[in-house]
Amino acid sequence: MDESRLPVPLARVALRVIPESVLNRLTYLLIRRMQKIHPGLFQNLARLDAATVCIEPSDLPYRFVLKFGQGPTSLRTAPRAGYSCDAAVKGKLESLLNLLEGRIDSDMMFFSREIIITGDTAVVVALRNTLDREEIRLLDDISAMCGPVSNPARKVIVRVNKFMDHIKTSMKNAHERRYSRDADETAAKLECARLQEEIKALKFRLAKFEVRGKRMDASAL
């Protein structure tokens, strides 16, 4: 596991269970923290034309609305339908996080249809280019929100993720064992059926021999 990455399964669970009002407060604090860590990023975002982009993780029940350009940058949640944006970027949460951190080429993700872009393409291109100028490590930025306990917080995140990984691996192994046992049982049943067929054939042949023997005995008499 790459410990410099925000654990996606943990993030997905957290984003599903944290109440929306709390989540919006946390994203507000995260943006404020990121403004201190990445001042260049926010200066570059402020240079862009004002725009609203919907970030739509396909594995979450809501989407994020990012506002930037010609004013303060903000990020908040919004329902999946009924909100108009200048542009939208859709994809799995993991793909979108990779995009944010510049770990994977966005054009490649576009070619392979991992992400889908709609609306004003110029807005998305400007945002992508601006984000790509900056080295963003979301795990570091989220940990930094915890102030003096950022290091222990980071360790907790990594540890919880390892625990989740462990549970996931255990469940996977149990699943495989269960199905491999099923497979063993199926093979035994098949072997049993094959042997039963063979016994039946042998019984038939034996019966034929017995009949033939009786006929031979009768003709000898």
């Binding site: 859709k90 889908i116 872009i117 709609t118 609306g119 004003d120 393409t121 400007a126």
Partner: peptide, 15 residues
Amino acid sequence: APASHVVYQDDNHCI
């Protein structure tokens, strides 16, 4: 292909 003139439409999984 100026980005200002490019539009992608997501039409039921067809782009």
